[in-house]
Design a protein around this nucleic acid. Structure first.
Length: 198
DNA sequence: GCGACGATCATCT
DNA sequence: GATGATCGTCGCG
């Protein structure tokens, strides 16, 4: 059920980002189980990618965990407010990661509503990386947790999507030079109601 | 439904 | 001291 380390420790982070669509992400935080189907991701490709925190082998206390072997989470705070969930991939010393941008909630929606203070529209619960982190109870203190542990993990339920149902687009929110500004490393399920935007 | 804008602070220079 | 891998609200219509 849980994705094995071999899934995460491959080198092709773009392929992994695509394959994570349809997988189910769970957290079990303070005794609360929440989960949802991954419907939107972005790949960040280690030292060559201007958009990556690990661009040019940049290494700081914040991004140190990106250099560990795949299968752990990289949490960081964006705009001083939002806790973002990333999946570290590749082998030891490679620094690729996948940002999880949106989920379709399937478990623990009542807890997600309370954490988000959103009670009118479940489509908004995990719509965007900041919202997702909050709904799932994740913050930077969870940085480095193993995806084979019991606090945060990803399961494969055998979902499969043909290429025609997957959209590849440019990543959101990056103010960087081409070609990385427009490279199609954002993936989402075509027509899905829970993605952050079309 | 959509665009503009301000909030807010950890992190790095 | 400047900068974000963002979000909620407001005005509009």
């Amino acid at each position: 059920m849980k994705l094995p380390l071999s899934f995460y420790q491959r080198e092709d982070v773009v392929q992994i980002a695509r394959e994570l669509l349809g997988k189910t992400l769970y957290t079990y935080i303070h005794g609360v189980l929440t989960g949802g189907v991954i419907v939107e991701t972005e790949a960040y490709k280690g030292p060559e990618d201007l958009g990556s925190h690990a661009y040019n082998n940049r290494r700081t206390p914040r991004n140190e965990i990106m250099y560990s072997a795949g299968g752990v989470v990289y949490m960081y705070i964006c705009y001083g407010i939002h806790d973002m969930l990333n999946i570290v991939t590749g082998t030891e010393d490679s620094s690729h990661a996948v940002l999880i941008r949106a989920l379709e909630p399937i478990v623990g929606q009542e807890y997600m509503r309370a954490r988000r203070k959103v009670f009118d529209n479940d489509r908004r619960l995990c719509k965007g990386p900041g919202a997702l982190g909050k709904a799932m109870g994740l913050n930077k203190n969870h940085n480095g947790l193993s995806l084979l542990g019991d606090l945060v993990w990803i399961e494969d339920k055998g979902q499969f999507y043909p290429d025609t149902e997957i959209v590849a687009a440019s990543r959101i929110g990056l103010n960087i030079a081409e070609p990385y500004k427009s490279i199609p490393w954002r993936f989402y399920l075509a027509g899905n109601k829970f993605i952050s935007r079309s």
